[in-house]
Structure formats: structure tokens, C-alpha cells
């Protein structure tokens, strides 16, 4: 390492400022800390569930600058200056659920709850995109998040039901 590189990049820890669920937070982190571990360990956002740490299960999905990403496949330092949303951005209060969370409760689109925060965030992204989808399209759109409990059927129902509620009483879309 040259002296100038060492001076600029030699540090193993850095301060990062991230807008998390609408609020700016600043923490000093190790440069190798994954975004998932940062959210869980530094910010106590334990809703970010770590299931595989190699980007295949999808349980750690968060919204990064509004787009769903796997937080185990990013470094915390990469979030500096960016916005992250976790499921707490919907509602962190079990007594006042967001309509998407309500739909999952009503349709029982969850069993053990481990993939649930990821599914909820992905559902938000799908609904925010505004387009009605067939059930088969919903299945394709959530295929990046593994659920081992439900066989997905009630999750698909919940996504559709939440979409219908949030988009208002428009026609069809189911197949």
C-alpha cells in the first residue's frame, strides 16, 4: 500500500451516515461489516433476518434507495449517504399494522415469520409499482425470497389482497 493510499483507505473503520426508515443515523463501522449485520447489530433492526449470507434465501431483503436488495450482499459502508427501509417502515407497532401487514395477518401469509419482513417489503415494492398482476406474476415476483413454511399460497393471496386494498376497488387481476 502506498502512503497516500494508506492515508486515504488504510482505516478498518469508518463513520457512515444512513437514512434508515426516514431518520438519519451515524455510526462507526468496520469496513467489512455487511449491511445486514449493521442493521441488526448497530441499529437493533433485528427484523432483518439472516438466513444464508450468500444471497439465495432473500430473508435479509431491505429497500435500498427504494429498491429491494439483499442486505447480506452489501457492505454497510456502501450505504453511506443512502436510504434504507426495513419492515419497521411499514409499522413497528403490532397493534397498528400497515395494510400490507394486515393483509398478511388476515390471509395467514406467514407461519414462522422468518421470511416475513422480506416478503412484506417486496410486497410493498410490487404494489408501489402500481401494476395489477396475475397470481402467476406475483409468484414470479416473489420468487427471490424463499419461504419454507407456507408453500407460498397464502402469501400470494396476501399480496393480492393488500394490492386490491391499497390500489382501491379496481377490477380483477387474478387468474
Amino acid at each position: 500500500m502506498t502512503t497516500s493510499t494508506a492515508a486515504k483507505y488504510g482505516t478498518a473503520r469508518r463513520a457512515v451516515t444512513v437514512r434508515v426508515n426516514g431518520r438519519h443515523v451515524t455510526r462507526e463501522v468496520s469496513t467489512r461489516t455487511t449491511l445486514a449485520d449493521f442493521l441488526r447489530d448497530e441499529l437493533d433492526l433485528v427484523s432483518v433476518h439472516v438466513g444464508c449470507e450468500h444471497g439465495e434465501c432473500g430473508c435479509c431483503t431491505v429497500l435500498f434507495d427504494g429498491l429491494s436488495v439483499r442486505s447480506c450482499l452489501m457492505l454497510a459502508v456502501q450505504a453511506d449517504g443512502h436510504a434504507v427501509e426495513t419492515v419497521e417502515s411499514l409499522s413497528a407497532n403490532p397493534a397498528e399494522l400497515h395494510p400490507i401487514q394486515e393483509a398478511f395477518a388476515e390471509e395467514q401469509g406467514l407461519q414462522c415469520g422468518f421470511c416475513t419482513p422480506a416478503m412484506l417489503l417486496r410486497t410493498k415494492e410490487i404494489i408501489d409499482a402500481g401494476r395489477e398482476m396475475t397470481d402467476a406474476e406475483v409468484r414470479h415476483e416473489i420468487s427471490g425470497i424463499l419461504c419454507r413454511c407456507t408453500g407460498y399460497q397464502n402469501i400470494v393471496n396476501a399480496v393480492q389482497s393488500a394490492g386490491a386494498k391499497l390500489r382501491g376497488p379496481t377490477a380483477g387481476g387474478r387468474d
Binding site: 493510499t5 455487511t34 459502508v77
Partner: peptide, 24 residues
């Protein structure tokens, strides 16, 4: 399953990135 230590460089220009790549 956690990354090993590394020097993290986040250059803001292509020239700097190329400089780092040639350095390492």
C-alpha cells in the same frame, strides 16, 4: 460466514480506480 478483512477503497474517479488496481 463473514467477509475476511480487506482494505476498502471507494474511489470517485475512474483514474483513481485504475491507479488503485495497478497498485494492488
Amino acid at each position: 460466514m463473514k467477509p475476511p478483512p480487506f482494505t476498502y477503497c471507494d474511489p470517485e474517479s475512474v483514474d483513481e480506480a485504475v491507479g488503485l488496481k495497478s497498485e494492488y
